[in-house]
Simulated assay, not measured.
Amino acid sequence: MNGPATTPTRPAPLRLLAGVLALEALAVLGAAVLLVVEVLVDVPNSLVASIALIALTVLAFALGVVLVIGVWQRRAWVRGATITWQVLQIGAAWVILQGDMAAWIGWVLVVLAVIAIVCVLHPATRGALRDRDGRELDAR
Rank of each mutant, 00 (worst) to 15 (best):
A22H: 12
R75L: 07
A81N: 04
A27R: 04
W72M: 14
I69K: 10
G80P: 04
A52D: 13
V48W: 06
A81K: 00
A31T: 03
Q86T: 08
G64Y: 04
Q73C: 06
I51L: 14
P44R: 15
A22C: 10
V87G: 04
A52T: 06
N45T: 15
W85A: 14
A49C: 04
L34F: 12
A31I: 00
R15N: 11
V39Y: 12
S50H: 07
L29R: 01
V65Y: 05
A18E: 14
L23I: 02
W72K: 11
P44K: 03
V36A: 10
A22E: 09
R74G: 05
L59W: 10
P13S: 13
V41D: 15
A92W: 02
T57H: 00
V87P: 02
L35D: 09
V78W: 12
A25G: 09
T57W: 00
L67A: 12
L67H: 12
A32M: 09
L17R: 14
L59K: 02
I69C: 04
T57E: 00
S46K: 07
V78T: 14
V28K: 11
L29H: 01
I51K: 08
G80M: 14
A27Y: 01
L47W: 08
V48G: 09
V28Y: 02
I83Q: 13
T57P: 00
L63I: 06
D42V: 08
A49S: 05
L47P: 02
G19A: 04
P44H: 06
Q86P: 05
L59H: 04
V28N: 02
V28A: 13
A55M: 07
R74N: 05
V41W: 07
A18Y: 10
I83W: 06
T84D: 12
L88S: 13
L29F: 10
L21S: 07
L17N: 14
V68Y: 06
L34H: 10
I51Q: 10
I90D: 11
G19M: 03
V39L: 08
S50M: 08
L23Q: 02
L21G: 03
A62K: 00
I51F: 09
V43C: 07
A55K: 00
I90W: 06
V71K: 02
F61M: 08
T57N: 01
V68P: 05
L63V: 11
L26E: 01
P44M: 11
Q73M: 10
A25F: 02
A52G: 14
A62L: 14
A52H: 02
V66R: 04
V48S: 09
A92D: 00
E38I: 01
W77M: 13
D42E: 10
L40M: 09
L63P: 00
L40F: 07
L17S: 09
A31R: 00
L47H: 13
L63K: 01
P13E: 13
A49Q: 06
L67D: 06
L67G: 12
L35S: 15
V66A: 11
R15K: 13
L59A: 15
